[in-house]
């Protein structure tokens, strides 16, 4: 996984709450057996609408999504994270993420930055006035910044310490866990014999 330190990019306002994983990528697009190529399915139903925000020219090349609360609810499909990444997104900003989506983001290297609801509104207002404007997300200092001068936005975002550390270092989870293999083997020796197995 690549290290994530800071990112500056064009931010897109997605003014909807409860953006579920079936909206992020409908099930019919989940049939690939690779981790790439899912950008076609991203917001597939909404992108049919020429007015949909991602279809507007000022947001071409966007890499930061600024969404309403409860982003990523529903299914466990990591394809939702891959679709966002395959399309070019590096960061999603929301006031609340569904647990599994947030977990999947951390594993796959997409930054899920949780901010106060008011911060989402401030960024939306800023993007309304300045369509195509960039936002900077700094993982080191856990801050989001947009605009300049007296109206500049600078606020903090939440991410758990462990995920932040892994993203900053670009670490592979499995490698970390396998360094504790002796603990796993020791635990396995204590499991009751009546626990079920799938092969006899």
């Amino acid at each position: 996984m690549d290290k994530f330190l800071t990112h500056t990019g064009v931010a897109v306002p997605l003014k909807r709450s409860n953006v579920d994983t079936d909206q992020i990528i409908p099930a019919v697009y989940l049939k690939r057996v690779t981790r790439t190529g899912f950008e076609d399915g991203l917001f597939a139903a909404w992108r049919n609408d020429p007015e949909f925000v991602l279809n507007r020219p000022e947001y071409a090349g966007a890499s930061i999504l600024v969404a309403g609360p409860d982003f990523g609810t529903g299914s466990s499909r990591e394809h939702a994270v891959w679709a966002l990444q395959n399309y070019g997104f590096k960061v999603v900003i929301s006031s609340r993420f569904a647990d599994i989506f947030r977990g999947n983001s951390g594993k796959a290297g997409l930054l899920a930055a949780q901010v106060d609801e008011k911060v989402v509104q401030k960024i939306w207002d800023h993007l309304e006035e300045h369509p195509g404007a960039t936002v900077t997300v700094d993982l080191e200092s856990r801050t989001v910044k947009a605009g300049e001068g007296p109206d500049a936005i600078e606020d903090s975002f939440d991410i758990d310490d462990y995920t932040r550390w892994r993203l900053l270092e670009g670490l592979d989870d499995i490698g970390i866990t396998l360094s504790h293999e002796a603990d796993i083997t020791a635990y396995e020796a204590t499991r009751p014999s009546w626990k079920p197995v799938t092969q006899h």
């Binding site: 299914s75 466990s76 990591e78 599994i100 999947n104 594993k107 499995i174 866990t177 293999e181 796993i184």
Partner: peptide
């Protein structure tokens, strides 16, 4: 509980 594919890989490799 449900997990994503990166975690599926993690469980396959480590059972944790």
């Amino acid at each position: 509980f449900g997990i994503g594919t990166s975690e599926v890989e993690h469980v396959l490799a480590t059972q944790t």
